[in-house]
Write a protein that binds this DNA or RNA. Structure first.
Length: 256
DNA sequence: ATGCCTAATGCAATTAGA
């Protein structure tokens, strides 16, 4: 089973690219972030015609997450993280598919730092850590897939010294990320490619993709049951080079 | 410190992204 995370940066503006990529690579499960569309504007028919069942939690203008499954319907187990009934942002959705529990998440960006958006990011991370603690120890395989908006180490940033004060790389954000990982999660891409420079995002500014000035911020974390079955993990980097591409590339794991 | 680019909203210019 191949499970992918892909921040599409607008599902309707990205639809031709998304459908082309689905047809070409035929992933089994896809977690999408930044739909930037309300529920009623989700392109359900086009995605169904491509052979995928879907669940989604949209939001007007910003955020929005979805899970797609090839040839079946994801069985939704949760939408929204517990811990804050006031939180109206669409950033978390979870489903069972073929015996695997898949969570799709869009962690807050948090800039500018300091400020209320940064505080929200840290609080959201605490809620994720609390919820993930129960998933880490499950007997069933669990995959936490999404845009974490965190570069874990210097190796994940083209110029780490320039990002030290940024909400994506700040010490307290990385510390929170590693508290999550230390529950027993495996960062699949880094586990299979130690020491390698790998990026998943290149911004639209300054010709960043051509210069390979990127960040690794999209991650798939596997609980021990899933990690035992891990066969491969890669970035579909070529998609970033397409016309009208998202600023993120799809990232995937293959589990047996 | 800001703009560089892109998407959404909505039809100009602002907000947000990372």
């Amino acid at each position: 089973m191949r499970i992918v995370t892909y921040n599409v940066n607008g599902i309707n503006g990205r639809l031709p690219v998304l459908l082309r990529w689905l047809a070409q690579t035929q992933p089994d499960v896809v977690c999408l972030q930044e739909l930037k569309a309300p529920d009623e504007k989700f392109p359900e028919a086009a995605i169904r015609d491509s052979g995928y069942g879907a669940i989604w939690q949209g939001q007007k203008s910003w955020n929005g997450v979805a899970i797609l499954a090839r040839g079946c319907n994801p069985v939704e187990t949760r939408r929204g993280l517990p811990g804050d009934p006031e939180d109206v942002q669409s950033r978390y959705i979870e489903a069972a598919i073929g015996g695997v529990l898949v969570a799709g998440l869009y962690l807050p960006n948090g800039n500018p730092r300091p400020g209320p958006k940064f505080d929200y990011k840290l609080r959201w991370m605490e809620r994720l850590i609390d919820h993930a603690a129960g998933l880490a120890t499950m007997d069933a395989p669990v995959v936490l897939a999404g845009d974490y908006n965190v570069m874990p180490t210097d190796l994940d940033v083209y110029k780490p010294e320039r990002w030290l004060d940024d909400a994506l790389f700040a010490p307290e954000v990385r510390a929170a990320y590693f508290r999550l990982v230390d529950q027993g999660w495996t960062d699949a891409l880094r586990h299979l490619h130690p020491g390698e420079t790998i990026y998943t995002f290149w911004d639209y500014f300054r010709n960043a993709f051509a210069r390979d000035a990127g960040l690794r911020i999209d991650h798939l974390l596997l609980n021990p049951a899933a990690a035992k079955r891990l066969k491969a993990a890669e970035v579909d980097r070529f998609v970033r080079g397409w016309e009208k591409a998202s600023d993120h590339a799809p990232v995937w794991v293959q589990i047996k």
